[in-house]
Simulated scan of single mutants.
Amino acid sequence: MKEMSVMLIGACLTWGTTAHAADIDGQWARSDGNAKVTIAPCGSDICAVNTWIKPGTPKEKEGDKLVMSIKPDGDGIYSGSAFDPQRDLTYRLTVTVKGDRMTTKGCIVAGLLCKGINWTRID
């Protein structure tokens, strides 16, 4: 499964206000050093948008966007789905935010193919 840089976490919340998204809103750097994203409201949703991609990183570019429909499941845990319009793929998504650390886990093919990505909040 290809890297889901914009999958992060951050994306479209399906409840009415974005106040619940405060834990995920902001700038995040992927742990492999290949990408940075901004997570913020986009319309009634929240999107993660690539703001920087390490040169030579295949299949990713600045401006790629991931739109997530996620709801809180517990303290800092969100789950739902994410849509990647660049690849026309929808993922089952779990996001866990603990302080300045975030982990996203996206699955496709009925949950048989999953990938987790760690993120660190940046200023």
Rank of each mutant, 00 (worst) to 15 (best):
S44T: 12
P55R: 02
V95A: 02
L89H: 04
C107P: 03
G26H: 01
V67T: 15
N34M: 12
T103C: 05
D75Y: 04
K65Y: 07
D100C: 02
I117K: 01
N50C: 09
C42F: 14
K98V: 13
Q86K: 08
T103R: 10
V49R: 14
A11Y: 15
G80M: 07
V67Y: 12
T38C: 01
G16T: 14
D64Y: 10
R87L: 10
G80V: 03
A35M: 00
L8K: 08
G76A: 10
L8S: 09
R121K: 07
W119T: 01
K2W: 11
A21C: 14
A21P: 04
T96R: 00
A48G: 14
L8E: 13
M4V: 13
R92M: 13
S79P: 00
G43C: 11
P72V: 04
P85K: 06
A40Y: 04
G76Y: 03
C114Y: 08
K115W: 00
M1C: 08
G63K: 03
R101P: 00
G116L: 09
S81K: 12
A21S: 12
G74E: 08
G26M: 00
D84V: 03
P58H: 06
K105L: 12
I24K: 05
C12Q: 11
I117C: 02
S31A: 15
G16M: 11
I53M: 02
R87Q: 12
V95N: 03
D84P: 04
A110S: 11
A11W: 15
T18D: 13
T96P: 02
G76D: 09
D23W: 00
V95S: 06
I117Y: 11
K98W: 08
T14G: 13
P41K: 03
T51V: 06
V95L: 06
V95H: 01
D64K: 02
F83P: 00
E60P: 06
W28L: 04
A29F: 01
P55E: 02
I122H: 05
D88G: 02
V37I: 12
P58I: 03
A48N: 05
S69A: 15
L112C: 02
S69W: 09
G80S: 04
M7V: 13
Q86L: 11
C107Q: 00
I122M: 11
L113Q: 05
C12P: 11
K36E: 09
G111T: 00
S31Y: 03
I39H: 13
C114E: 01
L66V: 13
G10L: 09
M1R: 07
G80Y: 04
W15Q: 12
K61T: 04
P55F: 03
P41N: 08
T90F: 07
R101H: 08
K65L: 07
G10K: 06
P41T: 09
P55C: 08
T18W: 08
G116P: 01
M68T: 14
R30Y: 13
I46M: 13
F83W: 15
C47F: 06
M1K: 07
W15V: 13
S81A: 10
V97M: 01
H20A: 14
T103Q: 08
T90R: 01
D123L: 01
G99P: 02
I46G: 12
M1N: 05
G74K: 10
P72K: 15
Y78T: 03
T38Y: 04
N118V: 07
P72A: 14
F83R: 10
